[in-house]
Design a binder for these strands. Structure first.
Lengths: 144, 144
DNA sequence: GGCAGTCGTAACAGTGAAGGTTGCAACCGG
DNA sequence: CCGGTTGCAACCTTCACTGTTACGACTGCC
């Protein structure tokens, strides 16, 4: 499926900011996060911009500018992040409308839609069970 | 995420062949299926080729050639189809290795990997609960 | 007020997966 | 031998995302 790394990078950024703030710093810069994630600061700013629209982080401009958490990590779940950065559905329908004159072509989309919705609900439920605090704890628990 | 329609198209093709064979026909051609799915016959042949490698369908060449089911629809699940046509994982890691000198960069991949594996197991379980016979029944039950 | 550092965002090239298309060899029943 | 279909390679197009550059906007500090 060649899935996106957007959710992974967003979780990375949030864990990084959370850890950094836990060490007493006020704000984190996109430059610092990009170095840790081994990517470009603009990519981080774009992603964090989406998280800001979702109310997960805040940004400050000017001198001493940077990013900070808008809520505690333990009150954020991966579902919040997922919904902020992944707009589309997990599974897609046909690119072009199937032949509505054919019984299968006509009935396949509602049939698959209903199955896919059930699966997406399950995935959302799983994502909602993991807080970013859980993620950060797992990160710090990784063997050296 | 801009997901693939591969699973959808593969299920469409299988349901079509199953219905067609249930009407007494021997084999279905990629041309017929492509017309129903409103796509190109080569796309269908590529997909069915993957399903053949997975043992779900068979093909015959020469005159009167075409595709037939290798098993009953009720013995195939969407998981069988999914594994045949979707090689990659649902969620991806970073494209480039994160900074291993950073605590977060070092621990983020094992942490996310473990979470993602749990979710994929759940998705697989959900897909395994739906047979292609279920899909065909839902297709035929769609309002006119 | 000016400077320096960072965000905000637009614009564009590069990448990779998937779909769409064409062409043709291989196969085989009649 | 013919006609219809699969098998498969080659190529183009499309699309989303990433990576990069550029530059204006903002603001604490001097």
């Amino acid at each position: 499926m060649s899935a996106n790394s957007r959710l992974t990078i967003a979780a990375h950024a949030l864990a990084w900011i959370g850890l950094y703030q836990g060490q007493g710093h006020e704000v984190a810069t996109s430059e610092q996060i990009a170095t840790s994630a081994n990517t470009n600061p603009v990519v981080i700013r774009r992603l964090l911009g989406e998280l800001r629209r979702a109310g997960l982080v805040e940004s400050r401009r000017g001198v001493g500018a940077g990013w900070s958490l808008a809520r505690e990590l333990e009150s954020m779940t991966l579902l919040d992040v997922y919904e902020a950065v992944e707009p589309g559905p997990l599974f897609a329908m046909h690119r072009t409308t199937p032949d509505q004159g054919c019984v299968v072509g006509h009935g396949i989309q509602p049939a698959m839609q209903s199955i896919y919705e059930g699966i997406e609900d399950t995935v959302r439920h799983e994502l909602a069970r993991v807080t970013l605090e859980n993620v950060l704890r797992d990160v710090l628990a990784a063997p050296r």
